[in-house]
Design a protein around this nucleic acid. Sequence first.
DNA 1: AGATACATTAAAGTTAACTTTAAGTTTGGA
DNA 2: TCCAAACTTAAAGTTAACTTTAATGTATCT
Lengths: 150, 150
Amino acid sequence: MEYSIGEVAKILDINPSTLRYYDKEGLLPLVNRTPSGIRTFNQDDLSLLRLVQCLKSSGLSIKDIKQFVDWTLMGDDTIEERRDMFRRQKAQMEAQMAQMERTYNAILYKCWFYETAYDEGTTDFDPAKTPDEVAMLKRNSGLHHEKQSN
Amino acid sequence: MEYSIGEVAKILDINPSTLRYYDKEGLLPLVNRTPSGIRTFNQDDLSLLRLVQCLKSSGLSIKDIKQFVDWTLMGDDTIEERRDMFRRQKAQMEAQMAQMERTYNAILYKCWFYETAYDEGTTDFDPAKTPDEVAMLKRNSGLHHEKQSN
DNA sequence: AGATACATTAAAGTTAACTTTAAGTTTGGA
DNA sequence: TCCAAACTTAAAGTTAACTTTAATGTATCT
């Protein structure tokens, strides 16, 4: 089964221009063309595009992804480089997820803070009189902004 | 205790120019100045800056953060808006974290794939002969790129 | 007083990842 | 055959969030 650029765009919910941009950047080195020059995408191209989306959402840049694609084209001699890239990216994502959890806790605290402020009709309530769990979260969040500046 | 822009920059590991940019964008409406015009940051300013960093890392734009700061300056009449903002941001982060977990699983699979390929000396090994858990992960990751294109 | 480090502003420059535009070509249906 | 939709390229434009530059002022040390 083959697909036009517009069909691929719909399937993967990408702008056709973005697909052309990826192609120009060397991310899609194996896309075929009709004799008149129109791109025809096959299942492999779709798989690669899904991988590109995944790598992008893991935080890799277009440049990094091109490097990976180039390594893949070179074959088995570059397995180590690719392995190391994924090891690094795994570590990077773990750091990112840890950071995200800390940020999420701070947002949770802010949610609690404004739910309470909403109920009280003011941000100037006494944060000492609060459920223990949230109070602990507050102590750990490093966000005591309201106390001083409101 | 008060701090110069350079001291704040070091404490929070931000470029002084970034601090001036935040100020210009209205994110730091309460920073004092010496008679000669030099900014002096106090503890409240530092707290607000930490909050700005947190909101930024949660995915809010400078514009969104300015809106929040403006609401805060307006006082208790805007508690509902701020509460809703944090509710939305909480939901947004949850979606982001769910997406990140899916991506992380795909990266884990890639790690396994290239560790195995490294051991085998080729990417063209039989993925059927693999530990069950990873095989399941593979089936769920939607990344069967190697099979076809290597 | 002079040097040096740090501060100020406004404005221009940077970067990544698209997105849009312009001008044209190809394809499929009435 | 003709029209509209969808394709092509190259190049310019967009956006966010800084970052750098230039020209100048201020504070501190010797």
